[in-house]
Amino acid sequence: MNVSTGHFRRPRKQSSRGLKAAPQAVPPFESFYEEHRDAVLRELRRLVGREAEDAYQETFLRALRAYGRLKHADNLRAWVLTIARRVAVDHYRRREVAPVVVEPETDSRPAYAELGELADGLPHKERAAVVLRYGYDMSYAAIGAALGSSEDAARQAASSGVRRLRRRLGGERQGPGSPAPADNHLTTSDEFSLTQRPRAETRRMQ
């Protein structure tokens, strides 16, 4: 798994007026760990609360697995916090996964597949919040973790996304204010490798 973008390639040369910023050499893992561990734990406490300690270990083990392949040390704080957030998302996903339910015959495709396409065109954050909430039945806390924001902000983003969809779809196919139809087809967002089956009962937006 590629845990970050950019860190496995050498950074582009930042040259301005002949000055070259040389990429920082990757420090021993020990220094990296010492420097960022408190920040990682703080972030994980915020995202997963009492289960932060397991997530902490997982975060640094993932970082360690990728560490030998790093080409430069620019912004390692951001890199490791990205890993921490992904660990938090996985953590929620594991917890929230539901047994696969036999779905009604009306549509063989999973809800998230429909929803992604339907939500295309929404602003980035709203789209992600809508897909994760209604396609994956994730909690707002987990969505907040995925998006690097708070639970409230996630709720806000999902609800304004739904409002926007209603306006748009209402204009296109149904009466204003009616819920979005569930038979649209869509693809998953490439930002989240969403692979689990959603619960059948959440296939429709309410």
Partner: peptide
């Protein structure tokens, strides 16, 4: 630093 230089950066 020196161990990382010789054996690899995953020094802990």
């Amino acid at each position: 630093e020196s161990l990382a230089h010789t054996f690899g950066v995953r020094v802990l």
